[in-house]
Design a protein around this nucleic acid. Structure first.
Length: 905
RNA sequence: GCGCGAUUAGCUCAGCUGGUUAGAGCACCGGUUUUACACACCGGGGGUCGGGGGUUCGAAUCCCUCAUCGCGCACCA
């Protein structure tokens, strides 16, 4: 006999050691030369300085479930891990660090600062990768990549140069989103709109040179004026014009004339442009081309100049009137409004709710700002990427994200890729400083001399690239591109991507574009979007709210399998998951219980199977009993269902289906049914058949559950007796094949009937308070031939599972007892005479009925009182009626029971 | 404003192309030392499937509409 195992599963005894063993054995490593059908997932690289949170836990568990499943199916499974340098995020963290020393990055200087960041990354980076190991992630760590690795940097430069050669990368003056705190440009995606209660100020701009404009309102001093509306009054300091619609007759006479721009002493022209909606507001729009993208476009068309009135820190520049210089933008906003009020030029102020863009990294209000930046022309890249989705080359799970994708791709705007940061990939562009040369060199390698004048006075562009400019190459840059490596040949294109919906545009869409552009193939065929983990109040888990759950604490208390089962079973594709951080037991207890149940089923199997080599079901085919054929049939269907669910990315369904088979059928029924046979009560042949079937069924359950709960399933599986030629570990064992010949509908119907009978008897016993130890006889008056055969064959089961002593078919006529009719029509009857004290039970029931009669009479009386019904509040009357109905119901049930006890007598 | 999604037991959620009595886990009530497991076992109560209308022999499931919540996009100065 094997050594007895402890009655409770202790994950800590197994998990980490098991993981180390898996890793040492090289089970996670993919082989580019195996020739096997590859299956590839690249990890969404977490920020290099990140620590694991539940979002990572959910996302990576799903990836691991997929990769383990495919590995078991015999695919050459590669899960490629790594981290992202996360430009702004990491730079901000280090800036905060040195701020504690009272220094800024400018104090250190660029070189020292970047060194400092590398130092920080060296100390804290990669922590998250070890945390992923702790939750069982079976990634190929030998291929771990970092977006700032030399080879990935090569890929970045290659892509920049190629796109530049194609004219898809360009430098231009445009309105970009500027974060005045991070002091950098942001892409449109990095500016997150937040609903904000703001105001709409209506300001009056007097017409220059006085009268002569019919139909316009006039100020008290007689000057005609135009009203414009704005949510950012401070920008008026940079107004360089006012636009009206060309067809707007009210203002036709004004076009080409000038307005006095208040506070500034400047005169600004009135221009006509189709952009203006004459129906909206006053039909006149102030133009601030340096601080608004739409105004910039109008200004370009109409030849209006741009005037920048804000510094990078968003304070007012010296180009504005002296009174406002140096003010913060919000301070200037108040000051401008007050000044207009004092001049009598403030028409009105309205409340206005609108979405104000905030920096996605520091939440500062983003300032649209005219600036020279590098851009990627996106439309030529987006078109094939959109088509690829339309053609079904890439599918989204759930499908609805396709619509979002389509909408974004069809309305795509150019991507601002330069960042005024120090941490990241330096833009591979050099400017010749030689007098009168002015050459711009875009190159893969740092050039030694100017390609035009031959001078050596070259200066590299100070900016770095958007962090996503390296991420979007991840599926092939991690495999050595632009070199044609073996990995690239074997593992590109990949297969599944698991990620959060938030980064559909940031990352997913751009990867599809870059994959098509640089490799001619989409980087993956399926994108699974996991939902967001929220707390029980529906709030996103976050550090600042303190409502997060630390996955490692969950592992500590419940085990990694409990964590994994909880997140996999708790949310479907694109569906958020609620987890209560205040009650971890409620959230993760069921997962731990499940692991414990597997442990105990394993213990049981070990006790009864012994150390002997496993007997296959095929060897005992002739001795199989209906219950054996039943569980094999159920297992076969479970395998089919789980496989099918996995193929459709219905991972939650796969997990719960496996759970239900294991617990609800194998553990609850089969194990109980075979106990006597395993004890040898029914002879050796029966025992051998039961052992073979149990081993087979448990083996199947462990396999289909292994991707979800790998630690406990591996632990149990290792201990089970196995055929000699079996794999050394469950992780690399075969995914179970469906054996269609094991499907057996007749056996299923037979066992279902037996289950119904046992359920009915248990119910009757409970209803009539028959003590558990009391054995009862069972009569089945009108059993069909079939039902009779099943029950006769199941005497032992009826005895063990519901303490039925003897079964008689036919003849319950006139007997005192309780009966139930099954769905199949079979009637079962439990005689009660001699089993319980009938007199006492009858007396108890009569007493209970009497008590209810009294209560009913009281209530009826109340309800027949007309003044009560007329005067009492409706809900009180309804309550009484409901009470009465409930009494009647109870009385009816008790009367039925009493009638049964009194029998035919 | 446009689009998408959600709304099912006290709580967290399943319920695929409409089909016999709407399920699970937790919680609740009653019972159980049946030697794998009390992190278990057995029995039970609890749902007008958000409201209203429609299609159909039949609707939680399809259509319309309203409400509430969430998400995406556009934000019209």
């Amino acid at each position: 006999m094997a050594e007895p195992l402890p009655p409770q599963y202790n994950p800590h005894e197994h998990e980490d050691a098991l993981y180390r063993w898996w890793e040492e054995q090289g089970f996670f490593r993919a082989d580019a030369s195996s020739g096997r059908d590859p299956y590839v997932i690249v990890i969404p690289p977490p920020n290099v300085t990140a620590v694991l949170h539940m979002g990572h836990g959910l996302n990576n568990t799903i990836q691991d479930v997929l990769i383990r499943w495919r590995r078991m199916q015999g695919r050459e499974a590669l899960w490629l891990p790594g981290t992202d340098h996360a430009g702004i995020a990491t730079q901000n963290v280090v800036e905060r660090l040195i701020a504690k020393e009272g220094r800024t990055r400018y104090d250190l200087g660029r070189e020292k600062f970047v060194e400092r960041v590398w130092e920080f990354v060296g100390e804290t980076g990669g922590v998250i990768l070890n945390q992923l190991r702790a939750i069982g992630a079976s990634a190929d760590w030998s291929r771990t990549r970092f977006t700032l690795d030399e080879s990935l940097s090569t890929a970045v430069r290659e892509v920049f140069v190629r796109l530049h050669e194609k004219g898809l990368v360009y430098r231009g003056h445009r309105i970009i989103n500027w974060c005045p705190r991070c002091l950098t440009a942001l892409s449109d995606e990095e500016a997150e709109p937040t609903e904000t209660q703001g105001k709409m100020w209506h300001l009056r701009y007097p017409v220059a040179d006085g009268a002569g404009i019919p139909g316009l309102p006039r100020l008290p001093d007689g000057r005609a004026y135009l009203t414009i509306a704005t949510t950012r009054p401070e920008t008026m300091l940079g107004d360089t014009g006012v636009a009206v619609h060309p067809g707007d007759e009210r203002y036709a006479a004004l076009v080409g004339r000038e307005l006095d721009l208040p506070l500034t002493g400047r005169r600004i022209p009135v221009v006509a442009d189709e952009y203006v909606d004459p129906e909206f507001g006053s039909g006149a729009v102030k133009l601030t081309p340096a601080h608004d993208p739409n105004d910039f476009d109008v200004a370009q068309r109409t030849g209006v100049a741009a005037l920048n009135v804000m510094t990078p820190e968003a304070t007012i520049t010296d180009d504005a009137p002296e009174a406002f210089r140096g003010m913060d933008r919000f301070e200037a906003r108040r000051a401008v409004v007050i000044a207009f009020e004092e001049l009598g030029l403030l028409e009105k102020v309205e409340d206005h709710t609108h979405a104000v863009p905030h920096c996605y990294r520091c939440d500062t209000v983003v300032e649209p700002r005219l600036s020279e930046q590098w851009f990627v022309r996106m439309q030529p890249l987006a078109e094939p990427a959109l088509q690829a989705w339309r053609d079904g080359q890439v599918r989204f799970h759930p499908e609805r994200f396709g619509k979002t994708y389509e909408h974004w791709m069809s309305n795509i705007r150019d991507w601002c890729i330069s960042r005024q940061l120090w941490w990241g990939h330096r833009i591979p562009v050099w400017y010749c400083q030689a007098d009168g040369c002015g050459e711009t060199i875009v190159a893969r390698q740092t050039p030694a001399a100017c390609t035009k004048c031959g001078g050596a006075a070259l200066e590299q562009d100070p900016d770095v690239l958007d962090t996503w400019f390296s991420s979007w190459l991840w599926p092939f840059s991690t495999m050595g591109w632009p070199e044609e490596t073996d990995d690239l040949g074997a593992f590109y294109p990949g297969h599944s991507l698991v990620t959060a919906p938030e980064i559909l545009f940031f990352w997913v869409a751009r990867m599809i574009m870059s994959g098509l552009e640089f490799r001619g193939q989409v980087p993956f065929t399926d994108v699974y979007f996991n939902g967001t983990v929220r707390d029980h109040l529906g709030r996103k888990m976050s550090k600042s709210l303190g409502n997060g759950i630390d996955p490692l604490i969950v592992k500590e208390r419940f085990g990694a399998d409990a964590l994994r089962y909880t997140v996999v079973s708790g949310s479907g594709a694109g569906t958020d998951q609620m987890l209560n951080y205040e009650n971890l037991e409620e959230a993760f207890g069921p997962g731990r219980n499940f692991a414990n149940k597997l442990w105990n089923a394993g213990r049981f199997a070990l006790m009864t199977l012994g150390d002997d080599a496993r007997v296959s079901v095929d060897e005992v085919q002739a001795d199989l009993e209906p219950m054996d054929r039943w569980i094999l049939s159920r297992m076969t269907k479970a395998i089919r269902d789980v496989t099918d669910a996995m193929e459709k990315f219905r991972i939650q369904e796969a997990a719960t289906r496996g759970y239900d088979f294991f617990w609800g059928e194998l553990a609850d029924w089969y194990l109980e049914l075979v106990k006597p046979r395993l004890r040898g009560d029914m002879g050796d042949a029966s025992k051998r058949a039961a052992q073979a079937t149990l081993a087979q069924a448990l083996d199947g359950a462990l396999r289909i559950l292994h991707p979800v709960v790998p630690f406990i399933t591996e632990t149990v599986w290792q201990k089970l007796p196995k055929p000699a030629d079996e794999a050394p570990a469950l992780i690399v064992a075969a995914w179970p094949a469906v054996r269609a010949e094991w499907e057996d509908d007749a056996a299923e119907r037979a066992i279902e009937e037996l289950q119904s009978v046992i359920g009915a008897v248990r119910n009757l016993r409970s209803e009539y308070g028959i003590a558990p130890a009391t054995r009862v006889p069972l009569r089945v008056p009108g059993a069909s031939e079939q039902a009779r055969a099943i029950l006769e064959a199941s005497r032992r089961a009826l005895r063990d599972l519901c303490r039925v002593d003897e079964i008689e078919f036919g003849g319950a006529e006139g007997e005192v007892g309780a009966s139930a009719v099954l769905r199949s029509g079979t009637e079962v009857f439990v005689p009660l005479a001699g089993v319980i004290d009938l007199d006492r039970e009858r007396a108890r029931l009569r007493e209970e009925i009497g008590r209810l009669d009294g209560q009913m009479a009281g209530t009826e009386k109340k309800l027949s009182n007309e003044s009560f019904v007329a005067r009492a509040p409706e809900n009180v009357v309804n309550y009484e009626r409901e009470k009465l109905a409930s009494f009647r119901d109870q009385r009816g049930k008790l009367a039925e029971k009493l009638a049964a006890l009194e029998g035919a007598a």
